[in-house]
């Protein structure tokens, strides 16, 4: 397995280089270093000299990929791409264009993102798997039919609607939780209730329907029929046999997103005023802060690769037949 992991890590390097090039291209197609300087320095009374100075201080005065004015390797190393990308591979994110230490900011802002994402994932899984099992139990009946209809309806509603509706009902009409905000420590719990609840409700439709499909696929297999023939109760069949065997596709979906929980949710964090990594990223995009954008995209890519690797490893845990070679 170690050889497999090492190989996967080596595969990740070209992927990360590709992601980096793509981020770089997409960012600089839309924003030139001059645009970034203007965004930072403001719109009023800015002179060309100030823009040049700003670029020089932050290393944006170099060409993007190829420096014709330099000799030898410096044709490639004295470029924005090289100077801004290489250190990422040792996880040195450097400083943002406004001078802040990006690693420090990430370490501070991942906790609020996790505070929402982890309970949302765990409670969401519990609720949706239970509902899916229940629906699978009543398969073919009117309960199954209406449950699917409701799931489709829930899936069709925009996430924004859940947020605004949730804030309106829970925060404004019922006044049981704050409409938005965040607090560190134990007082933070009451700020988490609404975003977590909305995240769970918003995900019920799609997840329940997906898990129902997985369970229905399992429920018609021979080993289930055998279990029933042996007189095992339906409850036991569902929770002991079907659930365990349906774990592989469930794990595929869940384990892969585990590392990405760090990255936060852009819309939820924005609407609830939560200082997580989602709002950190969206702020950086709005401010055209390339240093943060490239760091967050790189981090996201690394975490996604880790997620995929963890998924493969988890297969071996839940299914002894799977071997990583």
């Amino acid at each position: 397995m170690i050889a497999y992991i090492v190989r996967r890590i080596l595969y990740a390097i070209p992927i990360l280089i590709g992601v980096n090039i793509l981020t770089f291209l997409l960012f600089f197609v839309v924003n030139s270093p001059d645009d970034m300087a203007r965004m930072f320095l403001g719109q009023k009374h800015v002179t060309e000299e100030q823009i040049e100075d700003w670029k020089t201080e932050r290393g944006y005065h170099h060409p993007l990929f190829y420096n014709t004015e330099e000799q030898g390797a410096e044709k490639f190393t004295k470029t924005i791409f090289y100077t801004k990308s290489v250190r990422l591979f040792v996880f040195d994110f450097g400083r943002s264009d406004s001078g802040r230490d990006i690693s420090f900011d990430i370490s501070q802002r991942m906790w609020p993102s996790l505070a929402i994402a982890v309970p949302q994932l765990l409670i969401g899984l519990l609720v949706t798997i239970s509902l899916a099992l229940l629906i699978a139990f009543f398969r073919g009946t009117y309960i199954d039919y209406w449950a699917v209809v409701i799931c489709v309806a829930l899936m069709s509603i925009s996430g924004l609607f859940y947020i605004i509706g949730g804030q309106f009902i829970m925060g404004k009409i019922l006044r049981v939780v704050p409409i938005s905000g965040f607090e560190d420590g134990i007082f933070g719990i009451k700020f988490l209730v609404l975003p977590v609840l909305i995240g769970i409700v918003g995900g019920i439709g799609s997840s329940t329907r997906w898990y129902r499909t997985i369970f229905l696929e399992e429920i018609n297999k021979d080993y289930v029929r055998t279990a029933r023939a042996k007189g095992i109760s339906e409850q036991m069949v569902l929770f002991k046999h079907v659930l365990r065997n349906a774990m592989i596709p469930i794990l595929t979906g869940v384990v892969v997103i585990l590392p990405l929980l760090f990255m936060g949710s852009l819309i939820t964090e924005s609407f609830f005023g939560i200082p997580g990594l989602g709002s950190y990223t969206i702020d950086a995009i709005n401010r055209q802060d390339f240093s943060i954008v490239r760091s967050m995209v790189f981090l996201g890519a690394v975490l996604y690769i880790i997620g995929l690797l963890l998924t493969d490893i988890s297969y071996t845990v839940v299914d002894p037949r799977v071997r990583l070679n």
């Binding site: 519990l126 925060g171 006044r175 049981v176 939780v177 704050p178 409409i179 938005s180 905000g181 607090e183 420590g185 134990i186 007082f187 719990i189 009451k190 700020f191 209730v193």
Partner: peptide, 29 residues
Amino acid sequence: SRSAILIIIFVAFLLNACSDGAWNNPYPS
């Protein structure tokens, strides 16, 4: 697990109640 969830909900409500009377107060601290 059922007891654990109930306890979490109870603690959350208790925190709300202890903060200052208004459950939706965004300045508990």
